[in-house]
Design a protein around this nucleic acid. Structure first.
Lengths: 111, 111
DNA sequence: TGCCTATTTGGCAATATTGCCAAATAGTGT
DNA sequence: ACACTATTTGGCAATATTGCCAAATAGGCA
């Protein structure tokens, strides 16, 4: 692997890593609905504000979401709606896994 | 967040985490071409065989790839081709990020 | 059987991620 | 200026991921 290719896969994994946390997945799902500010998200998630803030900055640094300060609050928006494709793909993988699992169950009960 | 929702986002992040490594991204990209066995991939990647084997098992445990033993080798295949959507989405995010960065550069040079 | 090749597993040290607390920062309204 | 609210940042301990080595496993073939 030369350096250019390295950089490509590194960048791709960086984006993917940004998604790789339940809380961040939740946040993306919520922001798809509408914008939310930090304390609204914090309330829904039930963790420390600083924890949620850090998750948000991970997503922001990957360019997946953007922030906008208005009045007293910082509102976050889904910037790259294409990550929703990842959502449906991931659900697809989960579903495929489920079907394989169910096929196994069928086989063993038919034994 | 109740437990069911928790489980959903946890599962989603699990899949996403499986993708979140440069080497694993590379492997998926290669397997999209055609099947490869462990030592072929190892040669391309240039890491220890055991390291590559572990990356492959991460992908396999997420249901993204499957393995098939034939003769002396274990061949790996892309099981969920829908992860390629993730690929194009991730590239999309990267591109969007690049455009924002370039816009910033333009602004500062126009100053 | 024994030898060889291919792959996986166990162990371990280095590194990265996570989440809480406390403290700093920023903006609003009095 | 002051108090107040919202958010971010620094620090730190707990946990998870990674990659190499060595050892174990599995199958093919003489």
């Amino acid at each position: 692997m030369n350096n250019k290719i390295d950089a490509k896969y590194f960048e791709m994994s960086r984006i993917s890593k940004a998604l790789a946390h339940p809380t961040r997945m939740f946040i993306i799902d919520k922001l798809n609905e509408k914008e939310y500010c930090v304390h609204e998200l914090t309330e829904m998630i039930g963790a420390d504000t600083s924890t949620v803030s850090k998750h948000l900055s991970v997503l922001k640094n990957s360019g997946i979401i953007s922030d906008e300060k208005r009045g007293n609050c910082v509102y976050y928006n889904l910037e790259c709606t294409c990550v929703l494709n990842i959502f449906s793909c991931v659900m697809n993988v989960i579903q495929t896994n489920l079907q394989s699992a169910m096929a196994l169950v069928d086989m063993s009960s038919a034994k």
